[in-house]
């Protein structure tokens, strides 16, 4: 739980009055443009940076200098850069971290996490010889080694090619299935949409929070897109006669975009009206706004506000 958390470096505000809660077993996405304060928030929650004001409870422990060690015992972080010792093997890198967490049965644990990230056959390879995608997987294995209550992933697919990105997504999906609590920062919106139960959009201050579907509903009205066999002669008459239609427009492609209160109720009425007017309805369906639309809407609002 995070309450009114603020961090400033002198005059510069990294993030301000950030509040949210993440539930056990939830995958929580933290979205925002570069410089929005995402990484600084993760560093604060992982006890590396002290907040200027506000409070946070991480894995049941209140953030504060006395509790740093207790929190660090319960969390793990995978920073944007994998941060591996390139002259050491995969196994040696993990051994070091097993020692730092004072883990028992180190060999079996290492074998288990390497298997979970499909790297069991690369344990004796030097980390410096691995591709970026494989290094990200080693970093993920390292983060999983201590079986953390909360896993912080900072831009885990940054700089990866599509195949490596898909591999990391598959691994994160598997963790989601296992019920691991994950705090994921990213600016890849499709990643957040695919992996996260809920997302928060940060741009120094928290803009919105909710599931991707909730965010769409909060920001955008619901639309129906209608494709007809021919041009509607008097669309104004047909659409204004149906209750539940708020506005309409014709798109460049020739289809009609109708803004409605409840698509499930209004769609049959529209079909009936159009068929009654002798117009063939080729397709009708709700247009879906992507998380990207939500994100861009919010970030653009911010830019416009700053310009004013």
């Amino acid at each position: 739980m995070v309450e009114d958390l603020t961090k400033s470096f002198g005059e510069r505000v990294a993030y301000k009055d950030v509040s949210f809660e993440v539930g056990y077993g939830e995958v929580f996405g933290f979205l925002g443009p570069n410089g929005a304060g995402k990484t600084t928030t993760v560093r604060t929650l992982s006890t590396l940076i002290k907040p200027t004001s506000g409070q946070a409870t991480i894995a049941g422990i209140t953030l504060g200098s006395d509790s740093d060690l207790l929190i660090r015992e319960r969390i793990a972080i995978m920073p944007e850069s994998p941060g591996l010792y390139s002259r050491l093997t995969v196994s040696e890198n993990l051994e070091c971290f097993a020692g730092l967490y004072e883990l028992k049965d180190v060999k079996n644990r290492i074998d288990k996490v390497l298997k979970s990230v499909n790297l069991a056959d690369r344990k004796n390879d030097l980390c410096g010889s691995l591709s970026k995608g494989l290094r990200q997987r080693v970093a993920l294995a390292r983060a999983l080694l201590s079986d953390p209550e909360i896993l912080f992933l900072d831009e885990p697919t940054s700089g990866l090619d599509p195949v490596a990105t898909r591999d990391v997504h598959d691994l994160l999906m598997a963790l989601r299935e296992r019920g691991v609590t994950i705090f994921l920062t990213t600016h890849r919106l499709e990643e957040a949409e695919k992996l996260c139960h809920r997302v928060a959009i940060l741009n120094t201050t928290l803009k919105l929070i909710g599931s991707p579907a909730e965010l769409r509903e909060q920001l955008f009205s619901r639309n129906l897109e209608i494709k007809t066999g021919s041009q509607i002669i008097e669309p104004e008459r047909i659409f204004t006669d149906i209750s539940g239609i708020q506005s309409w427009e014709q798109s460049v492609s020739g289809s009609y975009i109708v803004n409605v209160s409840d698509p499930d109720v209004v769609a049959p009425w529209i079909v009936r009206a159009l068929v009654g007017a002798g117009i063939d309805v080729l397709a009708i369906g709700e247009t879906r706004h992507s998380l990207e639309d939500v994100y861009l809407e919010l970030i653009n609002e911010d830019v416009e506000a700053k310009q004013r």
Partner: peptide, 12 residues
């Protein structure tokens, strides 16, 4: 080499 951040988030 970027190893400091992961080290410092352990209980050391």
């Amino acid at each position: 080499q970027g190893t400091l951040e992961p080290i410092l988030t352990t209980p050391i």
